[in-house]
Design a binder for these strands. Structure first.
Length: 929
RNA sequence: GCCGAAGUGGCGGAAUUGGCAGACGCGCGGGAUUCAAAAUCCCGUCCUGGCAACAGGGUGAGGGUUCGAUUCCCUCCUUCGGCACCA
């Protein structure tokens, strides 16, 4: 059919027409109050990069759109929003490189990506659009930050409470302060169990105001601390652990990163480690993501043990998960940054230790990881006393022990710990067996459970029993106690960059770190021309945030004492804005609250399908498995504790789409060849010009591999409906799969067949469409299709739903008389997948309303099955014949029919029939000898 | 090294979760229509042998459980994703 034919499937015109229609009629606007059941379905919003959309984005968006449209047709009030995560390094890097303001590039990129997103016909409620860079958005990001700054984690209730409560309890004397400025909230924590000496508790109101302030500041959920950070001098900023690659370079730009102590903003996510771990059980997420989060939190149980230092008053605290190996501890190791290193070192070892400590401090992450194979360390000259046997054991310094985990010191048990074993071998330290492995396994380096030996009165105990008894013994003797540790660290929350949310904080000489009042928000990101950070190759270069250049802006007054003060110069990291965007969508126009509480309760409410509450379905890539999803959960829990949200978890159900990769072609020199130069017509891929055979691999799309597929090109050639259908037809949503443009015409052919099934050559409804009743076979096919499409959407198995619709079309196209009612049902089934063509067909079939809110078709179960079924008849597991019986026939009649089949009689002739297995509607298996 | 996911035709994938392996689509071969082509339609297409009926083999490899295994269990191999001196 030619393009100017009236019956031609003109997808370009049709798609534009219906996108305009939906926009004009606000078809997909969601109401914040409704009698309908609600369904909140969320996509991970994109970062608007200059490259625009790639084919991976619309994969998840199409899936969520299908579910959204399906839910609407099932009578749900659906919230399906879209927005942009627009602060962050890439935009700023691009702006610096091109000399344009990030506000401009961001606006341009958003406009571009939004235009692209709208080409797909997704049913977003565009009135809820937001960008994290909007002032009326980040105003509330700052507001949430203030909530964290003005809260502390009360261990007695395991929840965030306003800091004013803490001050009140301290002032009233209910809570006391330890000499180490820790809060003492009950008797257990008032006794220093480790040194065995009762310690004096201080009364808060007897302390100096500066000390009081320090104590309070140290309890805030958002606090400043001098911490070892990943400093990237080239980017002029610190980076979170997660922004540093395995090779010790920056995720952005691949620049070297160094360890360095700097005073930074931190968020106390570690306080929530246990709740983040516990509540992961409540959500309906892929098990693999849950495991990743559990590993990231990294809970372990063991004991803290106190080792006395020989000849000095100090104690070394260690954390171990294997207190049962205490008798095998033959030396100790301190992290180079450990505060006791200076005190323990003897005169003759002083220079060697100092040299080692300063060397490790200088090492970049790259150097430290590169040396993992070879252990290094230096003897301090000092000795500790092993509390279980009074042995005198040497204390070493080594960088295989890190300050950030446990206590920064370990007891080394070389016989039963791989790292200690390597270290002891290298430095000739004693190795003593204390765990006996099963027969035949060498005890040297044996790290699993076994039977205790060389452990005094504990000999013969199993590892588990030993752990329990020794922990009790340590507690009784004030030498230690049971302890829990987490790998999770507090979240480094500040960046020395321009393009981020400014901290609503001032530094006052008199009052210290002071937050702005809520009515002073938003603190707008000031305009500036030269926003580039100080870039350097020197690891010791001082951080100088761009905002520091705005001397007038920096000077301000203290909200507290009204005296002179300076503004905080750091900005928040990119993750900040994405921590709560799902809340803002619900009520994005609200200028007096971040979200209205009734509206929040409506959309986040638990339901039968989502007992945990929160977003009903969140679809996005697995690359956010830990960071974004953990950070957002943390913020949500803080907001929950403070009473601002109604659920403990933000995302009740999560689904990860798989990565779309594509074929890459290389010639024999390994040079990547673009698709334009690859000839696929033969049995092997060849170079179009040289004819050289090319190697084919499936890889992540990247410019360097020349295997990037641009969605715009696919849409202009085949249409958005085809694009959507192709991405869903490729395979299961959660699987990683290769894009293959050659397959795209196949799904377009299906849409063309569907079109021809309904539209005649004259552009009117085909003459084959009549008001006749469908024949029995077509009726059954229709009901099978309704059931299959419904079940498959519920199971997010869109590929097989599409297969079923293809079968339907192939069959119905053959029919001379096509029942209008059956055809209309088909159009409804198709509409979530290919909404433009469905609307057009629906209209041509004579309807004046959009198909988007038509009720979803229902099926009769009895019509989803054929009246007769063919069963395979096996003899000893091999198919020998087939029989046809009525559906749901009873076993006995099937058995008789099978045994009496001529082929089976011949097959079993002369054999003894031992057993006949009949599986209803499936098969018969005859066991014969 | 540790954790996780996955290996099925020439390709993407399907298989009611233990019951006829290869649905659907691509590609390829043959035919119809056409002056010819595009488009469309029909037939064929897991491998081996055979003109054929048919026979044998077959879901990464090897073993096991079972009347019966792509599906469950053990060992190994490969690919992808994550973590990585976490005491």
């Amino acid at each position: 059919m030619a393009e100017n034919d009236p019956g031609f499937y003109d997808f370009t015109t049709i798609e534009r027409k219906w996108q305009d229609f939906w926009q004009k009629n606000q078809t997909f606007a969601a109401k914040n109050h409704s009698d309908k059941p609600k369904y909140y379905i969320l996509d991970m919003f994109p970062y608007p990069s200059g490259d625009g959309l790639h084919v991976g984005h619309p994969e998840g968006y199409t899936a969520s759109d299908i579910v959204s449209r399906y839910k609407r047709m099932n009578g749900y009030n659906v919230l399906h929003p879209m927005g942009y995560d627009a602060f962050g390094l890439p935009a700023e890097q691009y702006a610096v490189e091109h000399g344009v303001h990030p506000r401009e590039t961001t606006a341009k990129n958003i406009a571009n990506i939004e235009k692209q997103i709208k080409m797909f016909g997704f049913s977003y409620d565009w009135s809820r659009r937001l960008a994290t860079t909007d002032v009326d958005y980040y105003c509330w990001t700052q507001w949430i930050f203030l909530k964290m700054f003005n809260s502390w984690f009360d261990p007695s209730v395991k929840a965030a409470r306003p800091i004013s409560e803490l001050i009140h309890k301290l002032e009233s004397g209910e809570y006391l302060v330890s000499p180490f400025d820790e809060i003492i909230y009950d008797e257990v924590h008032g006794i220093n169990a480790l040194s065995g000496e009762p310690i004096g508790c201080l009364k808060y109101d007897e302390l100096e105001p500066d000390r009081q302030r320090e104590i309070i500041d140290n309890q805030r959920l958002a606090y400043m601390a001098e911490v070892p950070v990943n400093w990237c001098p080239k980017l002029g900023t610190v980076l979170a652990n997660e922004e540093v690659t395995n090779e010790g370079r920056s995720d952005r730009g691949n620049h070297p990163v160094f360890r360095r102590a700097l005073k930074q903003w931190m968020l106390r996510i570690t306080a929530y480690a246990e709740r983040l771990l516990e509540d992961i059980e409540k959500v309906n997420w892929p098990e693999s993501i849950k495991i990743m989060q559990r590993n990231w939190i990294g809970k372990s149980t063991g004991a803290e043990v106190s080792f006395a230092v020989d000849g000095c008053e100090e104690f070394i605290e260690v954390y171990t998960t294997r207190p049962d190996t205490l008798f095998g501890a033959t030396y100790m190791v301190l992290a180079p940054e450990h505060p006791l290193v200076d005190q323990l070192v003897t005169a003759e070892q002083k220079s060697a230790v100092e040299e080692y400590v300063s060397q490790t401090a200088r090492k970049s992450e790259l150097e430290r990881t590169a040396e993992t194979k070879d252990k290094t360390g230096v003897f301090t000259g000092g000795y500790a006393i092993n509390p279980v046997n009074e042995e005198r054991i040497p204390i070493w310094v080594a960088d295989y022990v890190m300050m950030g985990y446990g206590t920064g010191a370990i007891m080394a048990v070389p016989a039963h710990d791989t790292r200690d074993f390597e270290f002891a071998e290298k430095f000739g330290l004693p190795i003593i067996e204390v765990v006996q492995p099963p027969e035949g396994i060498d005890w040297r380096g044996y790290v699993d459970d076994g039977i205790a030996v060389n452990s005094g009165k504990f000999d013969g105990l199993s590892t588990a029993e030993f752990k329990q008894q020794i922990t009790e013994w340590l507690e009784e003797n004030d030498l230690g106690r049971a302890a829990v540790n987490y790998k999770l660290r507090d979240w480094l929350f500040s960046r020395q960059r321009y393009w981020g949310e400014p901290f609503p904080i001032v530094h006052c000489e008199k009052c210290g770190v002071v937050s702005l009042n809520e009515d002073q928000l938003p603190l707008e990101l000031p305009e500036m021309d030269d926003f580039s950070p100080a870039s350097s190759d020197d690891p010791d270069s001082p951080p100088s945030p761009p905002l520091g250049k705005l001397t007038d802006w920096v000077k301000t007054s203290c909200p507290n004492c009204k005296g002179a003060a300076k503004r905080e110069l750091n900005t928040m990291p990119q993750w900040a804005g994405s921590c709560w965007y799902y809340l803002r969508y619900m009520d994005n126009g609200n200028s007096s609250e971040f979200v209205n509480s009734d509206i929040e309760k409506y959309w986040m409410a638990p339901s039968e399908a989502n007992p945990c509450g929160g977003v009903d379905l969140y679809i996005g890539g697995a690359e956010h498995a830990v960071l974004h999803l953990l950070y957002a959960r943390f913020w949500h829990k803080v907001l929950f504790d403070l009473g601002y949200v109604s659920t403990v978890e933000p995302f009740g159900k999560l689904f990860n789409q798989g990565m779309i990769r594509s074929f890459a072609y290389r010639d024999k020199r390994g040079v990547c060849i673009g698709y334009a130069d690859v000839d696929l017509s033969g049995d092997k891929p060849r170079h179009k010009e040289t004819g050289e055979e090319l190697a084919e691999t499936v890889e992540k799309m990247s410019k360097s591999l020349k295997n990037v597929v641009n969605p715009n090109e696919i849409i202009s050639e085949y249409g958005a409906d085809t694009f959507r259908l192709y991405e869903m037809f490729m395979g299961p949503l959660d699987a990683s799969k290769p894009w293959n443009t050659r397959d795209v015409p196949g799904v377009q052919r299906f849409l063309q067949k569907a079109w021809r099934m309904i539209v005649g050559a004259d552009g009117k409804v085909s003459e084959a469409i009549t008001d006749c009743e469908p024949d029995d076979a077509s009726l059954r096919l229709l009901h099978k299709t309704i059931k299959k499409v419904r079940d498959d959407i519920e199971a997010m198995a869109f590929n097989t739903a599409i297969s079923q619709m293809m079968i339907f079309v192939n069959e119905f196209l053959r029919l001379k008389q096509r029942s209008r009612s059956a055809i209309e049902i088909f159009v409804k089934l198709l509409s979530p997948f290919a909404p433009h063509i469905a609307e057009e067909l629906w209209q041509r079939l004579g309807h004046t309303e959009s198909v988007a809110y038509e009720p979803w078709p229902s099926y009769k179960p009895e019509l989803t099955q054929d009246p007769e079924v063919e069963l395979a008849v096996q003899v000893n597991g091999k198919i020998k014949d087939k029989i046809t019986v009525a559906a749901n026939s009873d076993e006995e009649s099937i058995r008789q029919k099978a045994l009496n089949s001529i082929k089976i009689l011949a097959e079993t002739d002369g054999k003894e029939i031992l057993k006949v297995i009949v599986i209803k509607n499936r098969l018969v298996n005859i066991v014969a000898k």
